[in-house]
């Protein structure tokens, strides 16, 4: 791997300062960034490691919300959020494999916004708030296309705040080699309506499926989405599946996610 500077700040304030220079890149669990750097697809001059910062760790629940520290690994979310938001914990427990879940973090996943990652579906499907060192960003404003987010240069995600729905489910059709979602659908039923977020499918990254939301808000059952289809125009097409196949899977996974939500 080419040379760079690795810094390990002990506090968020130090991390923000270290991120101030050109060429600085935040390093969370590194499960995507490190392989990306080995392939020379990214070449930061300085990595600012966030996993040693205590204030970015942990899961807490209060007043119908669950707040996850940005540097909390997937395995900890799977274990510690289970009592407060089982649908979110179940999603975290399906990411990658056990070793990846011990390192990869929620903040890292959301900052990267891989179009096939699981967490963007949970954040958008729950209507979560992405909390950074400078502001709160609603999930509806945060995701801006494949690998693109509302984050500014040097901005660091500190936590993610999830409103807890009455019921939620996530089902993904895993791409068998990478375990990323070929298509993954997160559904969440709130008192004022249902949200449906789809990952893995679109060239524009995670998106909400308005027709399914309307149908499920009237009747929260798998039958309610039978016959609904999404256009294949903007779907990802690659060796793992055609655009038409992914569009079809969106409907199938949505019905399964509703069943999983119970």
């Amino acid at each position: 791997m080419y040379d760079f500077e690795l810094v390990k700040p002990a506090s968020l304030a130090e991390a923000v300062k270290a991120m101030g220079d050109d060429g600085a890149q935040a390093l969370a669990g590194g499960q995507t960034l490190v392989p990306t750097m080995k392939q020379r697809l990214a070449s930061p001059e300085r990595l600012v490691s966030l996993t040693g910062i205590a204030e970015l760790q942990g899961v807490s629940a209060a007043e119908g919300r669950v707040t996850i520290g940005a540097a909390t690994c997937h395995a900890d979310v799977a274990a510690k959020a289970a009592a407060h938001y089982p649908g979110l914990a179940a999603l975290a427990g399906q990411i990658g494999d056990p070793a990846v879940r011990n390192r990869g973090t929620i903040g890292g996943s959301l900052a990267n916004n891989d179009p096939s990652a699981c967490y963007p579906a949970a954040a958008l499907g729950s209507g979560a708030t992405i909390v950074t060192n400078t502001r709160d960003i609603a999930a509806d404003d945060y995701f801006q296309g494949m690998f693109a987010t509302a984050l500014e240069e040097g901005e660091i995600i500190t936590a993610v705040r999830f409103p807890v729905p009455q019921a939620a489910g996530y089902v993904k059709f895993a791409q068998p080699a990478s375990r990323f979602a070929l298509v993954g659908v997160f559904v969440a039923r709130f008192a004022d309506g249902v949200r449906v977020a789809v990952t893995g499918a679109s060239n524009n990254g995670v998106f909400r499926w308005a027709e399914a939301e309307a149908a499920l808000s009237g009747d929260f059952s798998a039958d309610a989405v039978t016959g609904l289809t999404v256009p294949a125009d903007d779907m990802i097409a690659d060796l793992h599946g055609s655009a038409e196949y992914r569009a079809h899977l969106v409907g199938v996974m949505t019905a399964r996610a509703v069943r999983a939500a119970g």
Partner: peptide, 21 residues
Amino acid sequence: GACLVHVDGKAVKSCSVFAQE
């Protein structure tokens, strides 16, 4: 997973973690 080791009791892929971390 060929490089898998335990760090503080947790399974970790050692090819994707920096030693200083």
